[in-house]
Simulated scan of single mutants.
Amino acid sequence: MTHPLPLFRFGIVADPQYAAREPHAGMDRYYENSPAKLKAAIEVFNAEDLSFVITLGDIIDRDFASFDAILPVYEALKHDNLFLLGNHDFAVAPEHLEDVAARLGMPAPYYSLAKHGWRFIVLDGNEVSTFAPPVGHPNREIAAEKLAELRAAGAINAEAWNAMISDRQFDWLRAEIADAAERGERVIVMNHYPVYPPNQHDCWDRERIIALLAESPNVMAYFNGHNHVGNYGVVEGCHFVNFKGMVDTESENTFAIVDLYGDRIEIRGFGREESRVLALRS
């Protein structure tokens, strides 16, 4: 018999991408409408008993001052408020590149938290990129080399607005998954960038992340944003869910509440977001 109540639940927002700029009609992005959409989402979140709400990156579209307009909207949220970093969050002046995580109140650029027998592993997918590291940082050079390599190979994700995690962060991810397994915790990994199904928005090191998650039976899902139209796939029982971007469309909203049960994950989509029931691997 299925238990009628979830173990716990949390909220998801992807890509508000606020900026004080004109809409991009061709991409159907309405940057200045995101605070109102976010406010509406928070009203729904506040009516539910949530463990936390996490925004999957791209809180802003550009300019460090944009944080001053969008972050106060979150102050109405009654639940713990978590962030991860997206590529647009680094579309700021060079002197602010090292201030972004702190401006968002994050404990670190990547981190994990354990709740109710689950572990949430939050990645910084921008660590090796041509835009997020401080100017002169070796990760910029590594990123340029990786991007050139992918372009030479004709990879669909060979885009300068993608990025990847460092080897050090990948080792940390592997250790977090192993530690969670030892403690009997199920895992959800979260990142700004998708990895599956193959798409032009995928992070550059998608293959090693897919392989690690597929071979780790305690990893149940990988949640991301970045690709605003959304996506879904499954590999070896691990679900890959790409949530849709809030900044898209003039008036339609998109966000989700995730209910975790002993045998499944239920995603309740609001607005343009799709609802899904995902069976947990045993």
Rank of each mutant, 00 (worst) to 15 (best):
V122E: 09
I210H: 06
D89F: 03
F255C: 10
A132C: 14
C203A: 11
H239S: 04
A36K: 10
Y74N: 03
R276F: 05
N87E: 12
V234I: 10
Q169I: 15
F170Q: 13
R119Y: 04
W118L: 02
P35D: 01
I60D: 01
A178I: 03
A221T: 07
Y31H: 13
D124H: 04
D49P: 04
G184E: 01
R21P: 05
K37N: 02
D63L: 01
R9D: 11
F45M: 02
G233K: 00
E250T: 02
Y31F: 15
I142G: 00
M1V: 08
V100K: 02
F67T: 10
P72L: 05
K115H: 02
D28E: 15
E274G: 06
F45L: 01
A101T: 03
R186Q: 11
R281W: 13
P94E: 09
E43C: 02
D28S: 15
L5N: 12
A108Y: 08
G57E: 02
K146R: 15
L97W: 05
I165H: 08
F170V: 14
P194E: 04
F10G: 00
L212F: 07
G271E: 04
V122R: 10
S216I: 04
N126M: 12
R9M: 12
E236S: 15
A214S: 07
N253E: 12
E236P: 10
V247H: 03
F223H: 13
P194W: 01
N191I: 11
F255I: 09
A132K: 14
V73N: 04
G125C: 05
D58I: 04
A19M: 12
I121F: 09
R29A: 11
A160Q: 13
L71D: 10
P198R: 07
A279W: 13
V247K: 00
A163K: 08
K146S: 15
D99R: 09
I265Y: 02
F131H: 10
P197T: 04
A180M: 05
N162F: 12
E185H: 05
R140E: 15
S34A: 05
N224V: 06
A101C: 06
A158I: 00
M190N: 10
G86R: 00
K115Q: 07
K37S: 02
K115D: 01
L278W: 11
H79A: 05
A36C: 00
Y111T: 07
H228C: 13
A155L: 08
I265H: 01
P109K: 06
Y193C: 07
M164D: 12
R140C: 13
R276D: 02
E32V: 10
G225V: 13
A152E: 13
S275C: 05
L85Q: 00
R151E: 13
E236R: 14
Y222E: 12
E95V: 06
L85F: 03
A132Q: 09
P72M: 08
R174L: 06
I54Y: 03
R206L: 15
P138Y: 10
R272D: 01
